[in-house]
Design a protein around this nucleic acid. Structure first.
Length: 313
DNA sequence: GAGGCGTGGCT
DNA sequence: TAGCCAAGCCT
């Protein structure tokens, strides 16, 4: 069943052209949008921005690109340095995958980010969104970029709904593909401008419709702002006492330490010993942590970031 | 396809 | 206050 489509082709065209003009006037000067940007810089920014607000990404990205300006430079870094540079961006497995990605770019593509969506998609840590985003934002090529911002903007302006479904549906993907302009530069600008609208105006909590350049075209507004039909069906994420919190606590301690951290130190940070053991095991399994001593005796074990104590504070 | 996976700001 | 939310990916 196709998603409801409340807009005429002429309205879609006006939506695209209005957003393009608005974007070119008001786009945020994000560092990875600078004229001297590189495909590698764009790819790094996209991976860092997966589930992390861009305001937190920007300073890390600047340091990162200064230190490792190319895939080849980054591919040779130590895991401990990579994880410390990643800092508190969250989901540190992304940092490991980004390095695997750099290594794959060197091995498969001679150190150059490929201008090919299928080859991008085959890289570690690169999914449908990131591959499409790199095609559009690094190469100016047509692609169908569907992130949480685009989903919300299309749900409102075209679908007339307050919010999209909790998970991406086939109907949504089909609608996004249908709406993407044919020409490379038009499609790339549409991807950037529809994302930007969702990020700075058409936000989830408090959309700024009074500042929206396309409010006069918006199907949700025309329908009288009906409330979210799926309210309550969105599962709330528990946090306190979870393995995720325990893993984050361990990673924070290891990032902050020059040398190995003893198990008894970690015991003081996380009192549930069984859960701590389980999480240390999963962190080692993930390649985020290395056990350096212990010889099987839990009480004598110590842990560090893989590859050594690190070269900086 | 549902669930796991960090972190911090905002309401 | 305690959820909700943020340029997803992988299994």
């Amino acid at each position: 069943m196709p998603a409801p489509h409340h807009q005429s082709p002429a309205t879609i065209t006006e939506l695209q052209e209005t957003l393009a003009d608005w974007f070119e006037r008001t786009a945020r000067p994000l560092p990875w949008r600078a004229p001297d940007r590189t495909p590698w810089g764009v790819l790094v920014s996209e991976v860092m921005s997966q589930q992390t607000p861009v305001a937190r990404v920007a300073p890390v990205w600047l340091e990162w690109m200064d230190r490792w300006p190319s895939p080849a430079a980054f591919a040779a870094a130590s895991t401990a340095d990579v994880l410390r540079a990643w800092g508190r961006l969250g989901y540190p497995r992304r940092a490991l995958r980004l390095q695997e990605c750099a290594q794959a770019v060197v091995e498969r593509h001679g150190g150059e980010v490929p201008e090919d969506e299928a080859l991008l998609l085959a890289l570690p840590g690169v999914g449908a969104y990131t591959a499409a985003a790199v095609m559009a934002f690094a190469f100016g090529r047509r692609s169908v970029v569907v992130d949480t911002n685009v989903r919300r903007v299309l749900a409102r302006t075209v679908g007339g709904d307050a919010l999209p479904m909790p998970a991406l549906t086939a109907a949504e993907s089909a609608r996004a593909a249908r709406l993407a302009p044919v020409a490379d530069d038009d499609a790339a600008l549409w991807a950037a401008s529809s994302m930007e609208l969702g990020a700075v105006v058409c936000t989830a909590r408090a959309p700024a419709c009074d500042r929206c350049p396309v409010s006069h075209l918006c199907a949700w507004r025309a329908a009288g702002y009906p409330p979210d039909e799926h309210a309550g069906r969105r599962r709330t994420q528990t946090w306190k006492g979870t393995d995720r919190q325990a893993r984050g606590t361990v990673m924070g301690a290891l990032r902050a330490s020059h040398g190995p951290v003893a198990r008894r130190v970690l015991d003081d940070l996380w009192p549930d010993a069984a859960q701590l053991s389980r999480c240390l095991g999963s962190l080692v399994e993930d390649g985020l942590v290395e056990q350096v001593t212990g010889d099987g005796a839990v009480a004598d074990a110590a842990y560090q970031l893989p590859g050594g104590a690190g070269a900086q504070d």
